[in-house]
Simulated assay, not measured.
Amino acid sequence: MNQILADTTTLDQELSNRFIELDPEGYFIIYIDPQNKLICAKHFTNFIDDRGLACDPETGKPIPCNGKVERIPTQIFTGRTAKEICVKLFEQTNPCPVSRLDHASYLGREFQRAEAALLSGQEYIQD
């Protein structure tokens, strides 16, 4: 059983390091609010430059992946479960701030991970 867990952990890490196309509609910072028992997702706009980098629409500069970036979200979505936040984001928001199916799939997986962390009392770190 431990070998199966090790194999799936290795596979998951490899898949997390693959190349992904960025969504021109923006990106999300996902976190949990344990005190209020909520999954939260801040949406930020961006544009993709000719190098494939996500850039800040206000400054035109690439948005760094690491470090602190001070930007104001366009929207904040919250839900008590992964399903609730997905319904709010994908079914009740018009226009939907997600334009790529791979991005939607990623968000669903992250919301599930965030829900599991919220229910177990563990820390959640977005992949």
Score class of each variant (00 low, 15 high):
Y106E: 01
L38A: 09
Q122S: 12
E110R: 11
T9H: 15
F19M: 10
E58V: 14
C86P: 00
S105R: 03
N94E: 02
G60M: 08
I72N: 10
Y31F: 11
N66R: 13
C40Q: 10
F111G: 06
I63Y: 00
Q92T: 03
L101D: 04
D102T: 09
Q112C: 12
P34F: 03
I20C: 07
A116P: 05
F90V: 00
T45Q: 08
F28N: 03
A54K: 00
Y106A: 05
N46E: 12
D49R: 12
Y31E: 08
Y106V: 00
G60V: 08
N66W: 03
D23I: 01
P24L: 02
G79K: 14
T59M: 09
E14V: 14
A116N: 13
I48V: 06
V87Q: 09
A6I: 13
T10W: 01
I85Q: 06
H43I: 06
C86V: 04
Y124A: 04
A6L: 15
L119K: 15
E115R: 12
A117M: 08
A117G: 05
P57G: 05
Q122E: 13
K88D: 06
P34H: 02
T9Y: 11
Q92V: 00
L107I: 04
P62F: 01
R18M: 09
I85P: 11
T8W: 11
E25A: 15
R71V: 09
I20W: 04
A117N: 05
N94Y: 00
E25Q: 13
Q126E: 08
C86T: 11
T81Y: 04
Q122H: 07
T74Q: 14
G108K: 14
A82T: 01
F19A: 11
R80G: 15
C86D: 06
I48Y: 00
F90M: 03
Y106M: 11
N36H: 14
A104N: 00
Y27G: 12
C96D: 00
D12M: 10
E84I: 03
I39G: 04
I20N: 10
G60R: 13
P62D: 02
V69L: 04
E115W: 02
T59L: 06
Y124E: 07
Q122N: 14
E123D: 11
I20V: 13
F47V: 07
I72H: 07
E14N: 12
I63G: 06
T78L: 01
N17W: 02
I63N: 06
